[in-house]
Design a binder for these strands. Structure first.
Lengths: 368, 368
DNA sequence: GATGGGGCGGCAAGCGCATTCCATCCAGCG
DNA sequence: CGCTGGATGGAATGCGCTTGCCGCCCCATC
């Protein structure tokens, strides 16, 4: 990529590179009008485009914002990405994107790559995992994050803080609630945009109980996946608050196919509840899983809300035309992306996300 | 973003920066084993991470790949993005992302930004518009692209070539077919990953006709939107091939809401066809529009395939759990993204995309 | 044992730009 | 009329790294 350089423009305009630099790229010292005109004209006629690399090197600030997600083709992340991108554009930043499939090792690689690019800030979205097999990965991710921060970068986590050795316990059954964890400063000193997963899934359980459901089952992601674990916990708390027995938890992959698989496995439970004259209410910890469950049930001839009820979480945009309308917890994903980007770039603490329970047809009162 | 520099590592290891550079970052000349060890040890202990900006400046190659899409939250683009990202990762490139809402002006800005970053290659996805109002935008996009290419960048367009003044006619009713346009070299000398929109929509029309449908209507995007126009044309050709009358074309926004709107408008036609004992078959030029149509019809109490038939185009992943199963044309979007990235980076011509008609329930023979 | 060549570090020159410091010029003031 | 101070353009330096070139040493060769 050879290209027109500043000094060529300067020569063309008959001024020094310093002067050209001052008129072309915002400086505190703006040269006289006449000279400025000459320089601008020269720049236009030569088709000058500043070399951002060189500028970055000279100013030691790149104007780059890194975004790390599990999977950009997942509507959850692509909505967030849209928000991040839109904020980045408004702030005149350029977006770097990396997808990691959710593995801490890939995430570390991404942080490393962005550190190498000297990104001004990094937004890291996606659930953490407290799985034992991820301990080394989490540790090295944490180290990499520390290094990035130590070098003056801004890191913002969407949802959960990074998993430290100490915190690896946090997702476990008897860990501290959301609030306590959020209050504890992240060891890596990263910003965290909190998503009230626990209280929202509790709200969902309450809403469902108030609608008259009394038998529940939970379709969760693999053990150790923080987002899933926390949502399960919140939901169970809600049931407990209403004096209902804890729901059985069925674990599978944290995606549509996981839901599909769980759906098959839950057929029996749905039918036996029906046999007893009640409807089982399912809570899938994310919408994609819920959609998988619905697909599996449908294949077995079971429909919501007639034969069972089901709720998801996230309110991804895909739901708009999904049948039956899926009860879920709306997360303002694009907005989350926007404020994540802004917070990361400014270094200010982001406002926690606001969610809300959205009741739809999939948990309607039985029609008959 | 201050950080450990190469020369600090070199000093720590007791060697010159040149030597350190050679051992740390792939050079043809690799220093002796003993020295290499010292340098590596120093790099690790200091936590050295090369400054990609400086490297880029020195090597004049950045390892950056730019991706420009209309909307990253649209599953069509996010699937492509996934493919691009995955190829980029494998090739050791970093991805720059920009969303433009499909306006040529924003696209130009994105190209400019990526040029400024000296991206090695740019993938530009999304339909072009031959609309009169976009003429100036297209022209300046073309200029910007030319400039990028002149500076040694590689540009790859997904779908259509850039719109030149000359080519602005191409999308018009009596323009040359796909093949002729593809054969004409792009003025900007950019690569083009061809998507056989015309022949595939023709295939779709043939398949539908063979299924026994004889009355068609088309739900298209706004006039001048190339992808839409070409698909319409191909479909009409297919009908013509079967001796069927041309379908009425109804235009609205190229998205879900446009489809919804068109769906309402088409209620009459569906009902009157039914009154005459036949079913109207709708072709929406993309899946999102088709989904909007289905939603609108459902609201009016009309269901596919019982009351009408409908087909879409793209086979976005959202369709997996859409009811009814939507007949469509499958485009291997992720694969398209992958080969787009590879071609852009290598400068080689990409293989044209392979699509196929997928018949599903939405165009099933009437059940009764 | 002298000579040529190959291998290996180091030196230094940039890559394109921002910015500090300096020289210059002119206006204004005493 | 001489001096000072502010404004303005230019020269020089450095951001962190790569790489062509030079010089050194050691070994093989005659």
């Amino acid at each position: 990529m050879a290209a027109v350089t500043l000094s060529e423009v300067a020569r063309e305009a008959g001024v020094s590179p310093a002067t050209a630099s001052r008129v072309l790229n915002g400086s505190t010292r703006v040269p006289g009008a006449e000279i400025a005109e000459k320089v601008k004209a020269a720049a236009v006629s030569l088709g000058y485009i500043p070399n951002a690399q060189a500028q970055a090197l000279a100013r030691s600030s790149t104007g780059l914002l890194g975004l790390i997600v599990h999977d950009i083709a997942d509507p959850y992340f692509s909505s967030i990405a849209r928000g991040v991108q839109s904020a980045a554009r408004e702030l005149g930043k350029t977006l770097l994107l990396s997808c990691t499939e959710g593995t801490p090792d890939e995430e570390r690689l991404a942080v490393e790559a962005f550190t190498s690019r000297r990104a001004d800030a990094i937004v890291l979205a996606g659930s953490r995992s407290t799985n034992d097999s991820d301990i080394p990965g989490n540790a090295s991710l944490l180290r990499e994050a520390d290094r990035y921060l130590a070098n003056g970068g801004h890191l913002l986590l969407v949802g959960h803080p990074l998993i430290s050795a100490r915190r690896a316990e946090a997702g476990r059954p008897n860990a501290a609630p959301d609030s306590a964890r959020a209050a504890r400063p992240d060891p890596a000193n990263a910003l965290v945009l909190a998503i009230p997963n626990e209280s929202l899934s509790r709200d969902l359980a309450l809403a469902l109980a108030d609608r008259g459901f009394s038998r529940f089952a939970i379709v969760a992601g693999p053990e150790g996946l923080l987002t899933s674990d926390i949502r399960v916990k919140g939901f169970q708390h809600g049931l407990e608050d209403r004096g209902l027995p804890a729901a059985e938890v069925r674990r599978s992959a944290f995606n549509r196919d996981g839901g599909f698989e769980a759906g098959h496995a839950l057929e029996e439970a749905v039918r036996s509840a029906a046999a007893e004259g009640s409807r089982l209410c399912l809570f899938a910890v994310n919408d994609r899983m819920a959609m998988g469950v619905v697909a599996a049930m449908r294949r077995r001839g079971l429909e919501a809300p007639a034969d069972y009820a089901i709720a998801g979480f996230d309110d991804i945009n895909t739901l708009e035309d999904f049948v039956p309308g899926l009860t879920t917890v709306r997360l303002p994903l694009e907005e989350i992306g926007r404020s994540a980007a802004v917070a990361a770039l400014t270094g200010e603490d982001p406002p926690p996300a606001q969610g809300e329970v959205v009741l739809r047809e999939s948990t309607a009162k039985a029609k008959h």
